[in-house]
């Protein structure tokens, strides 16, 4: 293990947040099974009070999870000098078998925690806990993802030994390597570009229809969720070449470095934000007829659609602008 302050902070932070979420999930079980607003007993009163504790715990933990994903990426990027052959976070994550699973679990936790926060926000607008069961039903899943992220991250950091020979972005994300990342890098640019443009247009079209007429919400949500992996694949196979001005460099992590103005952070934040808010539309849509939410949910859904469009629009704008100004021509 590398005893660096960043690793210690991430281990402590993820341990605390996983503990908070696991505790909240356990405390939420009685709410899921026995919560009854018509019951006026002392126990029901205690359950109602407990919703505040659980919501507070999860809200804080989710906020910390969101922050820790980016700190994890930044830490992986900073640790690359310890590994022979590593030039960015790609090499650091590849230095141990738990590196990439750990990142994947952090991403899943980020998306689930984001969705949970949206549900909680909508639930707090209704006077009769309208989304209580959905919220506390999702909570064990969020907690499980967070615990899995904390465990995989701990195994990863404990298993890291400096000076091991590791493959870096050049090898990992080169089209000939037999990895998933390489398969993404090997995707042909033209079909990927067409798929990207189609998804963007569909997103914009369905979003505008929903904003104007209140229809097509599910199509928008499904497109927004599908756009996340699609846009990521488009970035790895196509857009990143223009950022690096190299026709063979497909690494998604080098853009997190200073040489590229840390542009990777706004790019990935936009992608994640677009997926969470777009997914949130799909999760909340079935409840817009609920009496206690009928007045507030349509407005919230409109905001989420605008936010999702804005986030994906920012991602597309940054990529297309880079393509336009880059001296590289494919």
């Amino acid at each position: 293990m590398i005893l660096s302050p960043a690793i210690l902070a991430l281990l402590a932070g993820s341990g605390l947040t996983a503990g908070l979420l696991a505790g909240a999930a356990v405390a939420g079980v009685p709410l899921l099974t026995r919560f009854d607003l018509t019951d006026g007993s002392e126990r029901q009163l205690r359950r109602e009070r407990r919703t505040y504790l659980i919501s507070t715990c999860v809200a804080y933990a989710a906020a910390f999870e969101l922050l820790s994903l980016f700190l994890f990426l930044a830490a992986a990027d900073r640790l690359h000098p310890f590994f022979v052959g590593a030039m960015c976070a790609a090499g650091t994550l590849n230095a141990h078998p738990w590196g990439y699973p750990s990142l994947l679990m952090r991403l899943v936790t980020f998306l689930l925690a984001g969705l949970w926060l949206l549900l909680h926000h909508a639930d707090s607008k209704g006077y009769d806990y309208p989304l209580l069961r959905l919220k506390y039903g999702l909570l064990p899943l969020v907690a499980l993802a967070s615990v899995a992220a904390a465990v995989s991250q701990t195994r990863y950091f404990l298993g890291l030994t400096p000076e091991v020979i590791t493959s870096c972005c050049g090898a990992l994300f080169s089209a000939a390597a037999p990895t998933v990342a390489a398969s993404l890098a090997a995707l042909p640019p033209r079909p990927v570009g067409v798929a990207f443009a189609a998804a963007l247009l569909l997103l914009l079209g369905s979003g505008m229809i929903f904003l104007r007429r209140g229809r097509g919400g599910y199509l928008f949500a499904a497109t927004a969720v599908a756009a996340f992996p699609l846009f990521l694949a488009a970035f790895i196979s196509w857009f990143c070449l223009y950022f690096y001005e190299l026709p063979t460099h497909h690494c998604p992590f080098c853009v997190l470095q200073r040489e590229y103005g840390y542009v990777g952070y706004p790019l990935f934040l936009a992608l994640l934000g677009g997926a969470v808010t777009g997914g949130g539309v799909g999760v909340l849509l079935p409840y817009r007829q609920r009496a206690s939410l009928a007045a507030v949910l349509p407005r919230l859904l409109h905001r989420l659609v605008i936010l999702s469009l804005g986030a994906y629009g920012l991602f597309a704008a940054l990529c297309l602008y880079r393509m336009w100004v880059s001296p590289l021509r494919l």
Binding site: A9, A12, G13, L16, Y60, A74
Partner: peptide, 19 residues
């Protein structure tokens, strides 16, 4: 990045302890 790590070391534990 340093400030983020410092935040994780100090503010996160304090917040968790007082919830």
């Amino acid at each position: 990045f340093d400030l983020g790590i410092l935040f994780f070391f100090t503010v996160v534990p304090y917040t968790v302890a007082t919830i």
